[in-house]
Design a protein around this nucleic acid. Structure first.
Length: 273
DNA sequence: CTAAGCGCCTGCATGC
DNA sequence: TGCATGCAGGCGCTTA
């Protein structure tokens, strides 16, 4: 489900509600997610502690506690975080519930359980194995044409590089496909063959498509919702993702679907060389 | 070291 | 209606 724009959308919807609230109770209904939830850590660092920040790094949501600990949440493919009244029906696959007031709950739901949640003690976030190897944030100034050019010893395809979190953190399958379309680059093109100008176009396309998706509240293909349960609308603006067999918006050629690294790739054979 | 493939899970759409 | 198949916003681990 969620790539950087969806996580950012969730972050923005949750932050104003969560900041300042104290976690009163934590109920773990199923701790077998991608990795087993450490309930002891949650009780030690999160229960009875106040939330002072809601941040994002790559596709991770970071809940900063007053005691300096951080709750790190990854939503995998099907994870959702949402605000509910305690009397709201508990949806199937709700695995963790945080009580924030006598009636307000933050619920973590994840049918496929590819997501996970862990706590890092004060000062230890950047040392965590899942965090320490993350590449640059695509919307930061550290993601620039020279950075992409510096990878030019690699023969890997440009799409697999874009989706490698150790290189650029947060770009997933939808937005890699979309950015390559706008940059007019064939997804299978090896990065070592990209010109300086092409790298520049790629960086600009990535930033632009991510910013546009955030402005549209993310992409809701199936089940993505923000923290208030509202869908996004960027699916209406997708140029290539999921459009196999349909005409290219630029040239009218048929959009193709191929499989690269076990993931669907969509592109226009005329516009992307 | 790099790069590609496998498998984790449930739900949904499609075809017979 | 039932069943089999394929596919899905991710990513760590294993293998070559």
């Amino acid at each position: 489900m969620p790539e950087l724009p969806e996580i950012e959308t969730i972050r923005m919807s949750l932050a104003p509600v969560l900041i300042g609230k104290t976690v009163q109770k934590i109920t773990v209904y199923k701790k077998e997610l991608r990795w087993t939830v450490d309930v002891g850590d949650l009780n030690t660092w999160v229960k009875n502690s106040r939330i002072v920040g809601v941040e994002r790094r790559a596709k991770y949501l970071l809940f900063e506690m007053h005691n300096g600990a951080t709750v790190v949440v990854h939503l995998g493919m099907s994870g959702r975080l949402g605000l509910f009244d305690e009397n709201d029906t508990m949806e199937k696959h709700t695995h963790i519930v945080f009580d924030l007031t006598p009636t307000l709950q933050l619920r973590y739901r994840d049918p496929r359980r590819f997501g996970y949640i862990f706590v890092t003690p004060p000062g230890k976030l950047e040392l965590h194995p899942r965090i320490k190897n993350l590449g640059v944030e695509p919307l930061s100034g550290r993601f620039h044409a020279e950075y992409v050019l510096s990878l030019s010893m690699s023969k890997r395809s440009v799409k697999s590089i874009l989706m490698d979190a150790a290189v650029v953190a947060g770009v997933g399958n939808i937005y890699a496909n979309e950015a390559l379309f706008y940059a007019h680059i064939h997804p299978a093109k090896p990065v070592c063959e990209l010109s300086c100008e092409t790298c520049s176009n790629l960086v600009a396309a990535v930033k632009n498509v991510l910013n546009c998706a955030i402005a549209s509240g993310g992409t809701t293909l199936n089940d993505f919702r923000n923290g208030r349960g509202e869908p996004g609308f960027f699916q209406l603006e997708l140029a290539v993702y999921g459009r196999a067999g349909k005409p290219c918006q630029n040239c009218g050629a048929e959009i193709l679907r191929v499989v690269q690294n076990q993931r669907s790739t969509f592109y226009c054979p005329e516009c992307q060389k």
